[in-house]
Amino acid sequence: MPQDKPLNTSRVKLTQKQYQQLVSERQPKVPVLKRALRAFVSGGLICTFGQFLLETYMDVFGMTRDLASSATTATIILIGGLLTGLGYFDKIAAFAGAGVAVPVTGFANSMVSSAMEYKREGLIYGIGSHLFGLAGSVIVYGVVTAFVVGLIVSLVS
C-alpha cells in the first residue's frame, strides 16, 4: 500500500488521498449510458454491414463461408485503415467510441495511426517498428492465451 502523504503546501490541508477523493467527486461525469448506446448502434451497424459483405461474398462470388469470413474481415480492415488515412476515423471515434474500436476497424486504426505518426522517423524505425505500437499487445495476449487454452484443452480431452 502506498503511503498517504500531505500535499507539499500548508495551504491545502488535505492528504493526497483526501484531495484525490475531492477531485473524483467534482470531476464532470462521463455520460455512460449515452456513450454505451452510441457504441451499441455504431458497432451494431458495422457488424450488420459485415454480415451483408459476408453473404454477398458467399452468394455472389460463390466463396465458402470460411473464405467469405476472411474476406469480410480484410475488407473491414481496409475500410478502417482508409478512413484513418483520410483523417475521418478519429472524428467518427469521438462519437462512436468502442463502437468502432472493438470491431477490427479499431485494430486497423491503431496500426495505421501509429505507423503514419512515426513515418518521419523512416521506413524501418518509423513505419516498420511502430506499425504494431498500439496493436501489438492484442496479438501478444491473444497468442499467449491461445497457447495456454490450447494446452489445457489438449490435456483435458
Binding site: G43, C47, G50, L53, T72, I76, V138, A146, F147, G150
Partner: peptide, 23 residues
C-alpha cells in the same frame, strides 16, 4: 455471423481455435 467475427474477441477465438484444432 459477422456480429461475432468482426469484434476483436473473434481474433482471440480464431487463434485459440487454430491451436486446438492442430493440436
Amino acid at each position: 455471423g459477422a456480429g461475432a467475427t468482426l469484434p476483436i474477441s473473434s481474433f482471440g477465438n480464431a487463434l485459440a481455435q487454430g491451436a486446438i484444432n492442430e493440436a
